[in-house]
Design a protein around this nucleic acid. Structure first.
Lengths: 222, 222
DNA sequence: ACCTGAACACCGTTCAAGT
DNA sequence: ACCTGAACACCGTTCAAGT
């Protein structure tokens, strides 16, 4: 295994056609990739024509189809890279805060998620908008599962928390965070709104967790 | 004004072409409408071809275009009716529970929302999936605004709660509920999962609200 | 090995003709 | 007044030909 993270396997139909290792073709795929994001953000999922992408990338349509089997695969690739970054940001956060008290851990998780989305908020919005358009389902669910697992692991590492049903609790918290963030993005938020939302969400998750933990039987020394 | 609720004004481009009052054409629009839902659920947004809809409705493509200017308008109409029902369910709940203590009001709101979605969960899922595909943005935001307003009104009617910033609190709660519900639907939930989620969400919102209210200065009698 | 772009196919939309 | 469906237009995709 080369990577520390198993990358989710794309359905065959959505895989890029060539993974170019040599010379100019690497430049070409990068250009196509970048052009896809640009066109997506400028024209939306519906206005994302292959000819526009080719034009913006400075190649012909035919070239696009040498590297990607169809339009969906372009969106898929962009989404994949984007979600991978998101997942890694959250997982990094989980590693760092492992073993801290539950309320700190909760804040860290919420902040990591909201901040990762906010950092590339234009792309976030464009992808949220496009998400119905394609078979991103598998991608989204696998990242969801991965981040849910990280959340469970993180919560159970907290020394001051013990849950009756940690899977469900983590699911509820993470759904509220991920879904709430999506809703916020759909309302064209200013950076301030995002920050306010992040703080409120921290507070909400903390309140829920505080109330939900089965209090430990005193400290270790007792 | 005929209706008690102002129906959100659709952008001209998305309005149906005829609002048929006479005879068979009413039957026809209903058939087209129903066919749209069926095809949407069976084939997804991407597989929703106008010919399929016409076939399923038992008319020709031309007829479809006499009543709807284009495909998007079909989805728009279906979404509109669906969201109108959702909005009314939540607003009805708000009326009923007006003036109750904040925690009851919170539970009622969460339950009304999740239950309304669950009641037509197949349609909910199909529309969530389709939502990127079209200009539903205006529709969704106007319903969001409407339900946010209902939430604010409801929360401020609670006798035992007084918020520093009720708009923000209501926004946070409602985002978590609406967004979390969406996430749950994207994970192909069983009815049990939906119920569990509803309960957890109730508990989460309650915990947040309880912590967030500025406690009143004792009871009235004191 | 990589690129081109005219040609093809599919499907949304129209409109002249029917009842 | 309402419906039909062949024709048109637009765009995703291919493939024979170029370097």
């Amino acid at each position: 295994m080369v990577n520390s993270h198993m990358t989710f396997a794309p359905p065959d139909a959505l895989k890029p056609r060539k993974l170019p290792r040599q010379g100019r073709s690497k430049v070409t795929t990068d250009a196509i990739f970048e052009a896809t994001i640009q066109v997506l953000m400028a024209h939306g999922a519906r206005g994302m024509k292959t000819t526009l992408i080719a034009e913006r990338a400075g190649v012909s349509v035919g070239t696009v189809y040498q590297y990607f089997p169809h339009k969906e695969a372009l969106l898929y690739a962009v989404t994949q890279r984007y979600l991978e970054e998101l997942a890694q940001a959250v997982e990094r956060c989980a590693e760092i805060h492992r073993g801290e008290p539950i309320e700190m851990v909760s804040d860290a998780l919420v902040s990591a998620y909201v901040n990762a989305k906010s950092a590339r908020s234009d792309v976030s919005l464009a992808l949220y908008r496009a998400s119905g358009d394609m078979d991103t389902d598998s991608l989204v669910s696998s990242v969801f599962a991965r981040l849910l697992a990280a959340t469970i692991e993180l919560f159970s590492s907290a020394p001051d928390a013990d849950f009756d049903n940690i899977e469900e609790v983590a699911f509820t918290v993470f759904s509220a965070v991920a879904g709430g963030t999506r809703v916020v993005f759909e309302n064209n938020p200013t950076p301030q709104m995002l920050q306010q939302f992040r703080l409120r969400m921290c507070s909400m998750c903390r309140a829920y967790l505080r109330q939900t933990i089965r209090p430990e039987l005193g400290t270790v020394g007792a």
